[in-house]
Amino acid sequence: MEPEAEQFSSLSNPLATVDQLSTSSSQLDGVPADLESSLRFAGAQLTQAAGILLRLPQEIIAQAIVIFHRFYLGSEGGSFRINALKDVSAASLYMTAKISFLPQSTRSVLNVYAYLLSPTSPLRQPLEGTAGKEKPDAESYCLSEGSYQAARATLLQTESIILRAISFITQVTLPHHVALTYLQTLGVLPPSPTEKSSALAARTLAHLNTALFSPQLLYLTHQPPALAVAAIYLAAREVEVKLPSTEWWEVFDVDRETLGFLVVGLGSCEGWIQSEKEKWTETSCPLTLDELEEDVKRRG
């Protein structure tokens, strides 16, 4: 009755392999790597926006974004040219909410996506500045019964496709709660919060949330403890909180190299997001299959 060498996974996630990171279905289908990164970013952003509109907690939204990334991973994963990112985003969010304790009806989810995908939605506008922004036009995102039924069928079908592609691994462990525990362990999160400790915690969580948008797919390459340590390291430097001068990350089983890589990865997110903003000022990032086809065609 010796236990088999199987592991309990509530503190870790399945990670992507090198092969899966070096090639993808989308690239095999002729999506250039830079466009693929943009699509991943747009998908994560769309999911985040929809989650906020559905008033879902960040925990569920973050899990949905990770599942979205898992889906498009590797040559056996999904392809942006076959499964539109808007559908995968919606189905990821719908499914993640369904297995959580805040399930959303298909109608709520589809209404929100209809709004976000409408030509005048904030997501379709330049990301910054109010100049030239149109007011959302209610008619453009009204979901008729017919389109609702069609969208619902797509949603449920996409859900199945996602489950298959991710091998039913719906478990996503997030680094957020790990990070808070580590902050307490480091003694920088006193029971009665100070201004500084609150800022540190907030900045740590902000880094973790930003990492969901990283083109390096940090959530698929590193375990939660490593992400947590890197976020704490970076946040402490920014907020100027003194951490132990020893190599404290070793205590959390994170080595210096991993930490260094992740700190750079997290730190580069801001620049990456800025460049995405600039990249998509003229047109919005292609969210539907048709838009993507056009974009790919235009690039030749």
């Binding site: 996974s9 509530s10 499914m95 369904k98 297995i99 199945s160 489950l163 039913f168 478990q171």
Partner: peptide, 17 residues
């Protein structure tokens, strides 16, 4: 969509050993 009990059962079973 996909039966929620099935997803949950699969999720739990995948975590247990």
């Amino acid at each position: 969509g996909f039966p929620i009990t099935a997803i949950r059962e699969i999720k739990l079973l995948k975590m247990l050993s």
